[in-house]
């Protein structure tokens, strides 16, 4: 059992293991997102208040979920890297960061577009959008900090510390922004918090969320493989792999 984990935590072992795992997640992501898009766009009923603009929920909410989850995943990876010195964890964190920033951006964009028919403006300082914007800045900070160091190891450790500090702050930021929002804009219409949705509305949402998570796992597995090859390119097993291939 421990031997298995030990092997998995080594870049070489993970490289072999993830090759077998990632196709399943790619397939799941394609099927789930495909089904969710068709269902959400064409078959789910229109909302009685917002009409068809409600369908944006099927991309906005999964993107927002992923934006937050990826930051937490990066912080966990950073913790594992700092405490147990497992390099693989840092490689995974490196691989995830751009996707997380991208998801945050898409959540912001779809929220802003959704705001036009709902609030009548492209940007409203809504609690969710505001904390999503701050999360976006946190992502940029982590990516920029990692790139600013010349030594890869110090860049990795600095990014890990910042991610962990950020993840402690995210709930505080969320709470304070919500508090600030209710203080300044009492009882406005929030786009995503609503009375219980009927099944035919939330089932496609669930499928989309699962699809986005599969996509995240698939991307992370595949991209970590690239990071492994890049960082271990001087190691013997990578050189042998490249030699066989060419």
């Amino acid at each position: 059992m421990w031997a298995f984990f030990h092997k998995l935590a080594s870049p070489k072992g993970f490289y072999a293991f993830s090759a077998r795992l990632s196709p399943w997640f790619w397939a799941a992501a394609a099927v789930l997102i495909g089904a969710g898009v068709v269902w959400g766009l064409a078959f789910a009923p229109a909302d009685y208040q917002q009409g068809n603009s409600f369908r944006i929920i099927y991309v906005h909410v999964p993107a927002a979920f992923l934006a937050q989850s990826i930051f937490v995943a990066m912080a966990l990876a950073g913790l594992v890297f700092m405490v147990w010195k497992i390099k693989l964890a840092d490689m995974a964190a490196t691989a995830m960061a751009p996707l997380g920033a991208g998801m945050t951006f898409v959540a912001l964009l779809s929220g802003a577009v959704w705001g036009v028919p709902t609030w009548g403006t492209w940007w409203q300082w809504d609690a969710r959008l505001t904390s999503m914007l701050i999360l976006f800045f946190l992502y940029i900070g982590v990516i920029a900090l990692r790139g600013a160091f010349d030594g890869r190891d110090s860049g990795s450790r600095a990014a890990s510390v910042l991610t962990m500090v950020g993840v402690i702050n995210i709930p505080i930021i969320k709470y304070s922004v919500e508090w600030w929002y209710t203080l300044h804009q009492p009882a406005t219409f929030s786009i995503t918090s609503r009375p219980a949705m009927p099944v035919e509305m939330w089932l496609p949402l669930l499928i989309m969320v699962l699809g986005f998570y599969s996509f995240f796992i698939a991307v992370t597995l595949t991209r970590t493989r690239s990071v492994i090859l890049h960082r271990e390119s001087a190691k013997r097993w990578v050189r042998e792999l490249a030699g066989e291939d060419g």
């Binding site: 068809n52 603009s53 944006i56 991309v59 898409v106 964009l109 779809s110 577009v113 036009v116 028919p117």
Partner: peptide
Amino acid sequence: MGGHAAYVWPAYGATL
């Protein structure tokens, strides 16, 4: 999209 095409399609387009 019931008159909301200008919002729904760009949001899906950006995500895809």
